[in-house]
Design a protein around this nucleic acid. Structure first.
Lengths: 142, 142
DNA sequence: TTTCATGCAAATGGTTTGCAGCCAC
DNA sequence: GTGGCTGCAAACCATTTGCATGAAA
């Protein structure tokens, strides 16, 4: 399937009633090229120097999250990471295996969580999502 | 099984080469009484007023984490939560179901993650743990 | 032209740290 | 008595916000 291009994002943003500024398009293209979740500052560093402000990166990511374009992940590093949402990334549902020491990240294709509708503990909660992350020590750090 | 008491913690800390100060013991007793993971500030508020400093709470939690006494959890709230580690809490392995809106937390007794030793994606990572959290909208917030 | 997005700088909030005094051992 | 703890205050760092300017529609 074709990767999302600037045109796709332009239309998507327009459909949501958001303006498609240079920065927003650049961020979305960046995110769709990245295979791993990035922190806001890492995204900022990958943009052309001086082309935008870190605050703008945060504001854009916030909008994108609201639209369901990106997912915000938290691996206990003291900062959040962002990746294109599964639907937008056209990627399979997946999880992460993070090295406790060097923070290297591998993708985990497996998901062990079945359909939940019949679980007693749900107790009326709706619209349930889950986050499953593995932590370990990678071969290089052992 | 008997709950951990001050004496137990005193011995535990001593065995680890740490002094058992009043604050540390109070924190450990607090944690062993709580059923839900608390933020550092919540722990601080539950201690006798003026009995210790917030910085000390953080420092203690850090030590405890290093000893494997407590687990640090991150639910994307912008702050960390701490709970007695499974072994110390004498509680069953469990997960959490967090309301996205009011942050109410239910315990999830089920774990869907099987023994991982044969999974290809492990690729030499050792000492693997996992964190599985569910997010939804609770009945009251719907 | 109108509205929304941005840059800049300052504020915020959780967490950490330096240092001098204090308490457990 | 000694060295690890603690309180206090300041530093830190990720993230947010106010406001005047600038760019997209």
């Amino acid at each position: 399937m074709a990767a999302r291009d600037a045109n796709y994002w332009r239309n998507y943003l327009r459909a949501c009633g958001l303006k498609s500024s240079r920065t927003r398009l650049a961020l979305l293209e960046l995110l769709s090229r990245e295979s791993c979740a990035l922190a806001a500052e890492e995204l900022y560093e990958r943009l052309p120097p001086g082309s935008c402000d870190l605050a703008t990166v945060y504001r854009s990511l916030q909008s994108f999250e609201g639209l369901g374009l990106v997912d915000k992940l938290d691996w206990g590093e003291g900062r959040s990471r962002f990746e294109l949402s599964e639907q937008q990334a056209q990627s399979k549902h997946h999880h992460h295996l993070v090295c406790r020491l060097c923070r290297r990240v591998e993708s985990v294709p497996e998901c062990f969580v079945p359909a939940l509708s019949k679980q007693k503990w749900i107790r009326g909660f709706k619209d349930i999502s889950h986050q499953l992350d593995f932590f370990g020590v990678c071969p290089d750090c052992q």
